[in-house]
Design a protein around this nucleic acid. Structure first.
Lengths: 131, 131
DNA sequence: ATACATGCAAATCATTTGCGCAGTC
DNA sequence: GACTGCGCAAATGATTTGCATGTAT
């Protein structure tokens, strides 16, 4: 018995490629539509299955901004996001992660900190201009 | 036509009371079970409807830790969380919110920052002891 | 009396899964 | 050939909604 995702598949490679080439933070549905343009018979279930495999392999990251659905990201390095509360668009922020955060917070936490997640919310310039 | 949530209701008051009296960050289902002990005929739909009303009134807060379901919190002041990746328990952290964060980050953001969300992930002491 | 709120059940939305066949190693 | 991956459709889980009836003001 082999581990999951040890064989290559056209579907998985294409899904990763599409994800890696966008700067948006797409949902499974969005990826499905894009990949479908090249592999018309692919199913949504396959997209979900492969997103899990890629995530387990550490090649992609799963995001959640409390919208009730998940988004995916091929940028796996730690980085922060800015979520526009008007249009919903999510942008990566070009800021170096706060190094000193864990040591500073650790004493106040009943456990061992492994990671943190930091998101900013507000209105993006595009939306501000539009009014 | 009146606004939503302008009339009092036994159900809504009880839901808020139960939520306000717990330090856990319960799901709608959990609240439903608790409230049901006192209002047996209440429906899950009513719980959801009232959680939305309370949220719109600013009396409670909706949380999301990427588990695929929502949690609720009667503590509306800005505060951070520590999520145990083993048992899933969410604890409030007693740390003053980072004041300097917005001004420091604002220059790097294509929009206006209104708020930020900061969560820590790791293993809680309870789980660490258990091994 | 009016219009918001409820209980119930059906609907919706995102995601997961069982199954038999296809593709990769 | 063995075992992973696929497409399809049905199942699941959380949340939402339509409707007739109940209830607060």
């Amino acid at each position: 018995m082999q581990a999951l995702g040890t064989k290559r598949s056209r579907q998985r490679e294409k899904i990763f490629q599409v994800l890696a080439r966008t700067t948006s933070h797409p949902t499974a549905e969005w990826l499905y539509e894009r990949v479908r343009e090249q592999i018309p018979r692919i199913s949504l279930g396959t997209v979900y299955r492969n997103l899990h495999i890629l995530k387990d392999q550490g090649k992609i990251r799963e995001l959640d901004f409390g919208e009730g659905l998940r988004r995916y990201d091929a940028t796996i390095e730690q980085h922060y996001h800015f979520v526009c509360e008007r249009c919903g668009r999510v942008r990566d922020l070009d800021i170096t992660p706060l190094e000193d955060l864990h040591p500073r917070v650790q004493p106040h936490v009943p456990g061992t900190i492994r990671a943190h997640k930091l998101d900013f919310y507000g209105i993006c310039t595009d939306c501000l201009v539009r009014e």
